[in-house]
């Protein structure tokens, strides 16, 4: 264990400013081993089974795993692309922009479905819907909302019960929150009405799904919007009054994506990792290790269509567009 700490310290010193990572760990450390450096916005605990599965097959590789928010993953990688081998993030738009701007290298001949990849570089490996999550205690005597529209009606009808007890992403901080917000806004005007209602209830804003789930569990929040369903399912420390609702009007489902950095020092290991990840999520032998919703073989896509990997994703990353969108969002939410 001491080795691990020393190594972490060493690595931290070399990595850009040894900045404050949410988490950073080295797995399977050892002298002379090729180090695969992964920058990710996925919690270590969630991703651990996959890392272990890969290491079991490649015992002579060690993995340095760095966790940051999706926006930070984007910025830190963009500022020092040569310091990482693999980039994993749930912010599909930011990932697509990095690939578009030439930061990725191709991984050829991966039998990955075409709808879940872009340029043979960016590979989606999970399918995670955004959900309405409620604490049933706060809904006693009320019908459980099944769609955004019903949620709006309930919130409007009971402003006192939900004042300061509704939560959602602060899209200015969270890349994933911004992606969900823009995709919702594309799909329906309902999103704006919901934001206005939440704004009028002095909604709480969060940077991350984890904090929102914590507050739901403690009862501080009665309802939160656009929480990752997978994060709730992965938690074992929450009361059973927490209920996940997949909105029936339209689903917003994102794919967690991975790409190999163009200047990856350990590109061979990175490519192997991508292939392992693709095989696993497509019902490979290690699927039971997968703590995240696997891609499956393109089954029931109609019911749960994902945000598509296409250049349109970059629209909302445009400075002007982002400024306009955030201004509109602030108008609605912050009152």
């Amino acid at each position: 264990m001491r080795y691990v700490f020393t190594l972490i310290l060493l690595m931290s010193a070399t990595l850009a400013g040894a900045a404050d990572w949410e988490d950073q760990q080295v797995f399977n450390p050892g002298d002379g081993r090729q180090v695969l450096r992964v920058i990710s916005n996925t919690d270590t605990s969630v991703f651990l089974p996959i890392l272990e599965g890969y290491l079991a097959k490649n015992p002579d590789v060690s993995i340095a795993y760095f966790v940051a928010s999706s926006q930070e993953v984007y910025e830190r990688f963009r500022n020092a692309p040569e310091q990482f081998d693999l980039v994993i993030s749930s912010a599909m738009d930011l990932q697509l922009k990095l690939v578009n701007d030439g930061f990725a290298q191709r991984v050829e001949n991966v039998p990955h479905p075409s709808w879940a990849q872009w340029r043979e570089s960016l590979f989606g490996f999970t399918r995670e819907p955004a959900a309405i999550v409620i604490n049933r205690d706060a809904f006693s005597g009320l019908a459980i909302p099944r769609s955004r529209q019903e949620l709006i009606e309930i919130l409007r009808a009971h402003p006192d019960r939900f004042r300061a007890r509704a939560g959602t992403y602060d899209i200015r901080q969270s890349g994933l929150g911004y992606l969900f917000a823009t995709q919702d806004a594309r799909a329906s005007e309902t999103y704006w009405r919901l934001m206005e209602v939440m704004g009028s209830l002095q909604a709480r804003l969060y940077c991350c799904s984890g904090d929102m789930i914590d507050d739901l569990a403690s009862g501080k929040l009665a309802v939160s919007y656009n929480v990752l369903e997978s994060y709730v399912s992965a938690r074992t420390d929450i009361p059973e009054t927490i209920q996940v609702i997949l909105p029936s009007d339209f689903p917003t489902t994102m794919m967690r994506t991975v790409f190999v950095a163009r200047e990856a020092p350990s590109f061979q290991q990175a490519i192997d990792f991508v292939k392992y990840l693709s095989a696993t999520t497509l019902r490979g032998p290690d699927l039971d290790r997968f703590a995240l919703p696997a891609l499956g073989m393109g089954a029931n896509l109609g019911a749960q269509s994902t945000i598509t990997l296409d250049p349109g994703l970059m629209i909302f990353l445009d400075d002007l567009k982002r400024r306009t969108f955030i201004a509109e969002w602030e108008n609605a939410v912050i009152q």
Partner: peptide, 30 residues
């Protein structure tokens, strides 16, 4: 406030990369 379709219409089977720039007179807006 350009539409989503501005870029998604450029989607090709080969996933071609897209670059763009918006100028106001001689100043880059975005």
């Amino acid at each position: 406030d350009f539409p989503y379709a501005s870029f998604s219409m450029l989607s090709t089977p080969s996933d071609d990369r897209i670059f763009y720039v918006i100028y106001q007179d001689d100043k880059v807006l975005s």
